[in-house]
Amino acid sequence: MARRLLRPLRRTLLSPLSSFSKTLILQTQPSLSLQTRAYISEMRKSAFEGNLLRLLRNEIHYELDHSPPSQPASKFNSFTVDERQGEQWIRLSRKFGENEEVKVEVTMFDGSLPVKKPRKIGTEEEATLHITLIVDIYKEEWTDVLEIVCSAWPESIEIRKIFMRGRDQMAGQPYMGPGFKGLDDELQESLYEFLEARGIDDDLAAFLHEYMKNKDKTEFIRWMGTVKTFIEKK
């Protein structure tokens, strides 16, 4: 009798998986699987961020070692230069005569034109970079501002538009004046002379192109450093 009772018990104990054991494993497997997936995901994230930080550090070191930016100029001729750190433009300002103030807002490179040169096989096509200038001329006791929009090419200034606007804000739909190229040639020449007298000339264009090349590199290095610092924070 005892022997008959022991046989089924032995079969239960020695079977590969009892029903209770199967149920226990099935209940624990999902939990273990989620933990494993979370661990692998965290490891992948850590490896990805580590590689990204390595690339950023290498790029920063390369820029600083091979062609570091120079200290930006704070003056040019009669202009004071406001660098506008971290922004895509700078401002120049000066006094002219007894009652005029000239302010020039200058973008970083915002366009280009291909250089018309014979292209050699295996060489990259060169481009002439473009900078936009917005020249504002204020006069004491005047509520209006003379605004002149210009293009600065590497060695020249080109007037694009001239109009009047309010000192504080522009009216709803002001008359913007005719196209500059449509003006009388002599009038165009006189307007260029008007700007040149206030320091808006070809020398300024050359200065701005060198300044913006330096600023472009400075802002690029600053940007990489900011991204690196953000990723490093836990």
Rank of each mutant, 00 (worst) to 15 (best):
F180P: 04
T226V: 14
S15Y: 04
I40H: 09
I221T: 02
P118Q: 06
G182E: 05
I60D: 04
D202W: 01
W153D: 01
L64F: 04
I148E: 01
N58T: 14
H66A: 14
V135G: 05
L17W: 11
E155Y: 00
F109N: 03
T132A: 15
P68H: 03
Y138T: 05
K213Q: 09
S18K: 04
L13H: 02
S156Y: 01
G122W: 04
A152Q: 01
R7S: 15
Y62K: 10
G199L: 07
L146D: 02
P72H: 07
S21C: 06
R44F: 14
Y39A: 10
G166R: 02
K95A: 11
R119E: 13
L55W: 04
V227W: 02
L208Q: 00
I137W: 02
Q188Y: 00
P72T: 10
S33M: 15
F180D: 03
G177P: 06
D185N: 07
V135Y: 02
D136G: 05
R167M: 15
D168K: 10
F207K: 05
G86C: 07
R10Q: 14
Q173M: 07
I231Y: 04
F109C: 11
V104Q: 03
L113T: 05
S156M: 05
R57A: 12
D144R: 08
L204S: 02
K75F: 12
E155P: 00
L32W: 09
Q35S: 09
M212S: 10
W153E: 01
Q169W: 02
S112E: 07
S67F: 13
K161C: 11
D203R: 00
G225V: 03
Q29R: 08
A73L: 10
T107P: 07
R57E: 09
D185T: 08
A205Q: 00
L9E: 09
P8K: 06
K103D: 12
K213H: 07
G179E: 12
E147F: 01
K215E: 10
E105V: 11
S112I: 02
I121E: 08
D185G: 05
G166C: 06
L5P: 02
E186K: 12
S67W: 06
A205C: 04
R54F: 09
K215H: 04
I159M: 05
Q71N: 15
D203G: 00
Q88I: 09
W142C: 14
G166D: 02
D203I: 00
